[in-house]
């Protein structure tokens, strides 16, 4: 830090300084409170409105046509699982490999470029990723499909997975790499069998985090996976997804659909909360 010189306020009245002090400190405390408030509100509101509609039907039934009450989101839940599966198949290997590349082979130009690209990718709006997937998969295939949706989710997962992998690998002490190399083990084997294995629990939690985030993504699915009110497991076809269904139901005028949308929202929040709790737990006790 350059500025070590202290510029204290001119000899103003001491009481005034003390009052300013208390006022500002209280304002900071208030800021803390009003940040937490919406969270708690969203959390409890979703739980309150969602949990009552969370019944076995929600997980096992298909949506009912407009006007009929009841039904569930079985197709959307399955769809989300399939979409995340496809996303994971793309996002996890690419993310882990670029994370390894950035951390283990840092110092050269390509690794800096990869790092920069991931940083930029993490800031690209998800809707833009959706357009990208649309151009690459939907347009050539001439129809909306789960494949396109999964692809979009995969791209969205890459930066998170890369970042976590990189951070976890950096936590591994250099001495461990050297120990392995000194035994005459090649560099890539060292990376794979020693470094990656030692960091695996951290990387897994990072993947969970990225998955939980992808599970809640809506925007990139709007014109890739598109949604579907019927049972569909063919990845060539438009497919329902939990967040898409929540969106459709939330903006609909039907009370019963709102109820179900809240239930879906509750499932998502629950997922996010659990995964984050898990990540906290795992990353805290290590190293």
């Amino acid at each position: 830090m350059k500025q070590n010189t202290l510029k204290l306020s001119k000899p103003v009245n001491l009481t005034r300084r003390k009052v300013t002090n208390s006022v500002m400190i209280s304002l900071c405390v208030i800021a803390g409170v009003i940040t937490i408030l919406p969270l708690l509100y969203i959390f409890f509101y979703t739980t309150k409105s969602g949990i009552s509609s969370l019944n076995p039907d929600f997980f096992t039934q298909l949506p009912k046509p407009v006007g009929e009450t009841g039904g569930g989101m079985a197709n959307a839940i399955t769809g989300s699982l399939i979409l995340i599966g496809i996303g994971g198949l793309i996002g996890i290997p690419v993310g882990v490999l670029s994370g390894i590349y950035i951390s283990e082979y840092s110092g050269n130009i390509t690794s800096t470029v990869v790092k920069f690209i991931t940083d930029i990718l993490s800031g690209v709006p998800s809707i833009v990723i959706g357009i990208f997937a649309y151009g690459i998969i939907v347009l050539p295939m001439q129809r909306f499909s789960a494949l396109a949706g999964g692809f979009a989710l995969g791209i969205l997962m890459i930066p998170t997975v890369t970042k976590v992998t990189e951070e976890m690998l950096r936590l591994i002490p250099q001495s461990l790499r050297e120990a392995s190399l000194a035994l005459g083990v090649s560099r890539w084997k060292t990376t794979l069998r020693i470094v990656l294995t030692t960091a695996s629990s951290g990387i897994v939690t990072g993947i969970l985090l990225a998955t939980a985030r992808a599970a809640g993504e809506t925007a990139p699915l709007l014109f890739t996976s598109f949604g579907n009110s019927f049972w569909q497991t063919n990845i060539d076809e438009p497919m329902a997804a939990l967040p898409l269904q929540i969106f459709a139901y939330a903006i609909s005028p039907y009370e019963d659909w709102h109820r179900q949308a809240w239930a879906g929202a509750f499932v998502l929040i629950f997922l996010v909360f659990t995964v984050n709790l898990l990540v906290r737990y795992v990353t805290r006790k290590k190293y």
């Binding site: 002490p173 001495s175 461990l176 050297e178 120990a179 392995s180 000194a182 020693i194 030692t198």
Partner: peptide
């Protein structure tokens, strides 16, 4: 090495 570094 200076510090014992078995594979954890």
């Amino acid at each position: 090495f200076q510090k014992p570094n078995p594979f954890p």
